[in-house]
């Protein structure tokens, strides 16, 4: 029988630590698949952030740096400006990118840094055990919004829309991995973002709606449904900004 599916070459053999049903693993595979597809493994440097994906440095076969909480776009800037012909990506959670690291992502985009950002929005702080994230939905109960997120806890932040107002941001798209069709679509978008970097087009970000079944306290399947029914209406999918050169 012909081989239909295998682990991308750009993923190591180390067993991932993610909870069962967590979609971080799927998103890792999509990134690795993009690296394989474009044949850039040898010249790619990835930046892991602080969050559940902190150990991403163990999972990708390319060179990796681990950044402090929120600062991955600054670290990526340092790498990319030092080695302009390498491909540099960050992999960041929503707490990392949209709370503590807001300044770094905004200014990396404003400078038009030629990097690719994979922004994993699961509407929660996964790693620290389920506190409110900047992306937590209105009314959503978390450990630090026990009455459901209200006005006084602040409204969720749509980072992709915000960043799209910056001239330096070239390509911003929001995708989801809640079902196979969307996973395939997300994979294509990630490849496109890396291709743009290869052509030197500047800052690109793919926001991926993701699940944290553990902290949503849902089964993996229910968590996927929750993304479809609750997250997508607030965080609409699609291309938010496309300044890419048409090829």
């Amino acid at each position: 029988m012909p081989l239909k599916f295998k682990k991308p070459d750009s993923l190591t053999d180390i067993a991932m630590h993610y909870c069962p049903g967590c979609t971080h693993g799927i998103i890792h595979r999509l990134v690795a698949n993009a690296i394989d597809t474009l044949g850039i493994e040898g010249k790619t440097v990835g930046i892991a952030s602080v969050g559940c994906s902190v150990f991403a440095y163990n999972y990708f076969t390319c060179d990796m740096q681990q950044a402090s909480h929120g600062r991955a776009p600054a670290v990526a800037t340092g790498v990319k400006r030092s080695l302009p012909d390498r491909i540099v990506f960050t992999y960041q959670g929503d707490g990392d990118l949209a709370a503590i690291g807001t300044a770094e992502i905004v200014h990396a985009a404003a400078r038009g840094e030629n990097i690719t950002v994979i922004f994993v929005n699961n509407a929660i702080y996964g790693m620290t055990g389920g506190q409110m994230a900047p992306t937590t939905l209105n009314g959503q109960v978390t450990l630090t919004s026990p009455y459901g997120r209200r006005q006084q806890e602040g409204h969720p932040v749509r980072m992709s829309e915000m960043l799209s107002t910056l001239d330096g941001a070239r390509y911003i798209e929001r995708v989801s991995v809640h079902n196979p069709a969307h996973i395939i679509k997300a994979g294509k978008s990630i490849i496109k973002a890396f291709e743009m970097q290869l052509r030197g087009e500047g800052f690109s970000m793919i926001e991926v709606l993701s699940t944290c079944p553990t902290n949503l306290k849902m089964s993996p399947v229910k968590a996927l449904k929750w993304v479809e029914n609750n997250m997508i209406p607030f965080y609409p999918l699609g291309i938010i900004k496309d300044g890419s050169v048409k090829v």
């Binding site: 030092s82 080695l83 770094e104």
Partner: peptide, 13 residues
């Protein structure tokens, strides 16, 4: 903060 983290990236490179 950003400056020192850029230096981290560059030094690591």
């Amino acid at each position: 903060i950003s400056a020192i983290n850029m230096v981290y990236g560059a030094a690591g490179a």
